[in-house]
Design a protein around this nucleic acid. Structure first.
Length: 889
DNA sequence: CGATCCCGCCAAGTG
DNA sequence: CACTTGGCGGGATCG
């Protein structure tokens, strides 16, 4: 249905994908849609069929979003190019962008390692931080202003001046140009293999993403982006040609990002006219690096020992090249040697057929470590649950109380989702979280809930290995680190922007409206997008939904928040999946130190925050989830999610965790997960999988069902109503789907509970995806869903493109675990699904809320509502930009 | 016609 | 030197 609605383009794409892609085994499910399309056309490969976006989709379809780290996720460029029938050059375009997001890392010459979205959250968090440091937000503003002001006059020069000024600012700050931002764990490749060259595409891509993360209305016009990017590179020449080229590249990047569902094309209408722009549709709740850092860093740094570094710090390492200051991460000459040696090491490692890392990782991963980790998580969860129950569901808000925790805000947004997730997972019992929690508690080990975690994160750990003793020398200049940390800390604490935003989010519903009015950007109401956005607005009563469409350029954080929520919602699906996966992984395989709480950060955290015990736990959990599994959607979870909720009273955390180590060489090598090793040993027999696996099935069932990814395009579906009215939670569909796995489940149970993903989860995932694996036919067929949602239900939502991609999900565990059954998990990407987050529903959380919200039609209504809001202030928009989705055409 | 952006030349890097 | 990367911009397509 949806497809039909979709533009022909989309249809074609779908067809293409289905036909072309081998992996798309599942395509069958989607086939329904195909009908509309004619395959005959294929002959003439229209330009679109060769588009980078499509190619990227194909590429992505080949790999799971959350690969099992234990497996070898090697990507051979030649193979890929061959299989996809494209020139190598094109693959590079894709890989470079993916690499910038740390979705892949280069191993050696023709080889890359696939990480999928495992590190995505972390990467985004880091990029955000870096973006803040570079004051991209301001730069963007300035450019916009300038443009508006001087449009008429001499543009170029003005712009140049502006840029130069901006740069000056940056310079003052001490950092300027930044190089490729690395993540802990993935650092090596950049330096060694690619020597210094990392240039444009990769860096440009990161910067581009940063712009989104930094801007309030998460909309970035190509023009602005190009200007900023150019500005940084070369001050002066704003050549036309250069600009043009930059734009070309941005399109390339945008196509890839779009395929990742992180971005979506829209149009921003200003006075002058419509400008192409892109709107962020990715996660909003990525972990805030700064915070983490702050907590841990100081101490560690001081100590001089490799202190655990926040991912942020680590990431930052390469950021500021050098233009001048060597401070911070810049490489000092003295360090160069070290760096070299490190690189050499890396090379060796890379070159080696089997990188030690992997092996190590693999070894550990499957074994006990995970278990222990899981146990820890469980404990944490329990604690949280307890607290929650105590405090009762009233509200998560308490979290916010703490200013320091930035995450909260995010969490808050997300929370709804999380909760819903949990509830769903929990199962039918959704009735009360408390109950669940209690149960869990009583069981001591865990309730089924936990199962959801996926293994992926482990990847990170392995990397840690890289630090060789040799490489891991004492930091040459601790001072530099210290400085760095300080900086971050300041930012974290002081950055008004962040704070404000957070606050705004929580506190001020009122503000939203204002912001809206003020917003320069407006979505076209006509556009469905807008509507979708609006709808998504948080269910919370407290906050009214503001019209999302209007974006403000800067000033109003609240707005952003609102949007964020909405957007988040959209992303929700992805996130959701990711979480699920992540959880599964945790439970199953990955022992993350943090989970164990070994991680110093965690430890610290609780102490510092003690006050809020529960909250702390939540945070820790969140962090744990986030950090470990990059995709942290968890944020919200703070207490909400049952999973987390289940707190374990006293979990002792082994002290062993090791913090990440920094390498002086100019590269910080974060050893974020080193603890793993140590932790491994600690296997906590306690919870082993049994718990996990079995009981809960029922619980699992539901989860997502309710959530149906709706394509942004199709917003019209009225989810809103759904969410409130319909208890989606247990939509029939979900149930139906459930059975599929149930079969499998036994095996899981018997096998290592740990590793095996719970069937429920799987179902859940599938459902989310809207696809059921081929092998397993999903009961989930659209028809099944009786709920009003049905339209959506079709849920095969495809992203904008309307394409459905089936991906193999981390097969590892599954395969391994259940030999008898060759199961392949397939995940579909649902880029843009929008769901309504409902933190408010907390009461019901258990039930489910994932309602996808979308409804273009509703928009208008929503908008009006927003406007009405009492609080609203009327702003006179200085500028108005309308953002419209192009899709609608 | 402007927005997109594919194609592939060819230089820089690497082994 | 051959091969891998990937900057870059002409110019074809799309809308």
């Amino acid at each position: 249905m949806l497809i039909s609605a979709a533009s022909p383009e989309i249809r074609n794409r779908e067809k293409k994908l289905n036909t072309d892609e081998n992996e798309a085994t599942e395509a069958t499910d989607c086939s329904q849609e195909h009908l509309s399309g004619d395959e005959s056309d294929r002959l003439q490969p229209s330009r679109k069929e060769k588009s980078l976006g499509l190619l990227c989709h194909k590429f992505l379809a080949r790999y799971p979003d959350y690969p099992n780290p234990a497996l070898n996720n090697n990507v051979c460029l030649d193979e890929v190019a061959g299989e996809l029938n494209v020139e190598r050059r094109r693959i590079y375009d894709i890989v470079n962008v993916l690499e910038s997001l740390h979705m892949v890392s280069r191993l050696a010459k023709n080889r890359y390692t696939w990480h999928g979205r495992s590190n995505l959250m972390q990467t985004l968090g880091t990029l955000k931080t870096v973006g803040d440091e570079h004051k991209y937000a301001e730069q963007m503003q300035q450019i916009k202003q300038r443009d508006s002001e001087k449009e008429f006059d001499s543009d170029n020069e003005e712009e140049n001046e502006h840029l130069s000024k901006l740069r000056g600012i940056e310079t003052e700050l001490g950092h300027r140009e930044m190089c490729f931002v690395e993540l802990p764990g993935m650092e090596f490749r950049a330096a060694s293999v690619n020597s210094r060259k990392d240039k444009s595409l990769r860096v440009m891509s990161q910067k581009f993403v940063m712009l989104f993360l930094v801007s309030k209305p998460r909309v970035v016009s190509l023009e602005v982006a190009a200007k900023i990017l150019i500005g940084e590179d070369q001050v002066v020449d704003l050549d036309k040609s250069k600009f043009k080229t930059k734009i070309r590249r941005l399109y390339d990047i945008a196509n890839v990002l779009s395929s990742l569902a992180l971005i979506r094309k829209v149009h921003v209408t200003e006075e002058r006219g419509r400008k192409p722009a892109f709107k962020w549709t990715g996660p909003e709740d990525f972990p805030d690096v700064k915070r983490t850092k702050r907590l841990t860093t100081p101490t560690s740094v001081t100590s001089g020992i490799l202190a655990p570094r926040s991912s942020v710090d680590n990431c930052a390492k390469n950021l500021f090249p050098s233009s001048r200051t060597k401070q911070n991460f810049t490489r000092h000459p003295s360090l160069v040697k070290l760096a070299k040696s490190i690189e050499d090491d890396r090379r060796k490692i890379n070159s080696a057929p089997s990188s030690p890392v992997k092996k190590i990782f693999g070894d550990f991963s499957d074994s006990d470590l995970h278990t222990s980790r899981m146990a820890q998580l469980a404990a944490i969860c329990k604690v949280q649950l307890d607290e929650q129950s105590k405090q009762s569901k009233r509200k998560p808000k308490p979290h916010y109380a703490k200013p320091s925790q930035k995450t909260k805000g995010k969490a808050a947004k997300t929370t709804g989702h999380v909760e819903s997730t949990l509830s769903s997972e929990l199962g039918a019992n959704s009735s009360s979280q408390t109950d669940l929690s209690v149960q869990a508690y009583s069981q001591a080990q865990y309730s089924p809930i936990i199962p959801v975690i996926l293994p992926q994160n482990q990847t990170v750990a392995p990397y840690a290995i890289y630090l060789h003793s040799s490489s891991a020398r004492p930091m040459a200049n601790p001072s530099s680190f210290a400085v760095r940390s300080m900086t971050f800390g300041d930012n974290a604490a002081g950055s008004p922007a962040d704070t404000n935003s957070e606050y705004s989010l929580h506190s001020a519903p009122t503000g939203n409206k204002d912001s809206i009015s003020s917003e320069k950007y407006e979505y076209d109401l006509s556009q469905k997008n807008v509507s979708s956005t609006n709808q998504r607005t948080t269910p919370d009563k407290g906050h009214k939904r503001v019209c999302t469409e209007t974006f403000q350029e800067n000033s109003f954080p609240k707005i952003s928040k609102t949007q964020t929520n909405l957007e988040d919602t959209a992303e929700f699906n992805e996130t959701y999946q990711a979480r699920v996966k992540a959880r599964r992984g945790l439970i199953a395989s990955r022992p993350s130190p943090r989970a164990l709480h070994l991680d110093p950060e965690f430890i610290n955290t609780p102490e510092g925050k003690e006050n809020k015990g529960s909250d702390n736990l939540g945070e820790s959990v969140e962090k744990f989830l986030e950090n470990e599994e990059k995709p942290s959607y968890s944020d919200s979870e703070a207490g909400l999610t049952p999973v987390r909720t289940v707190p374990m009273p006293a979990f002792t955390i082994p002290a062993r965790l090791q913090p990440e180590a920094l390498i002086p060489a100019g590269y910080l090598i974060p050893i974020s997960h080193p603890s793993l090793f140590s932790c491994q040993r600690s296997k906590s027999p306690e919870r082993k999988g049994e718990t996990t696996s079995t009981p809960s099935h029922p619980a699992y069932q539901s989860p997502i069902t309710g959530v149906i990814p709706v394509t942004s395009d199709f917003h019209h579906v009225t989810l809103t109503s759904t969410r409130s009215k319909i208890p989606v939670s247990q939509s029939a569909a979900s149930i139906a789907s459930f059975p599929l796995f149930s079969q499998a489940s036994p095996s899981f149970a018997s096998g290592r509970q740990v590793n095996g993903p719970s069937p429920g989860i799987l179902n859940f995932t599938l459902q989310n995806l809207g696809l059921i694996s081929p092998g397993i036919h999903s009961s989930v067929s659209p028809g099944t869903l009786t709920t009003p949602i049905s339209p959506i239900t079709g849920h095969l939502r495809f992203q904008q493109g309307g394409m459905i991609f089936v991906k193999p999900m981390s097969p590892l565990h599954v395969h391994n675990q259940i030999p008898g059954q060759p199961m392949t998990l397939i995940s579909l990407q649902q880029p843009t699904v929008q769901t309504t987050p409902k933190g408010s529903q907390s009461a019901h959380n258990e039930s489910f809320f994932h309602t996808p919200v979308s409804a273009s039609s509703q928009l208008p209504a929503v908008v009006s509502t927003a406007s009405r809001t009492p609080q609203e202030n009327v702003y006179i928009p200085q500028r108005k930009l309308e953002v419209s989705t192009e899709d609608n055409s």
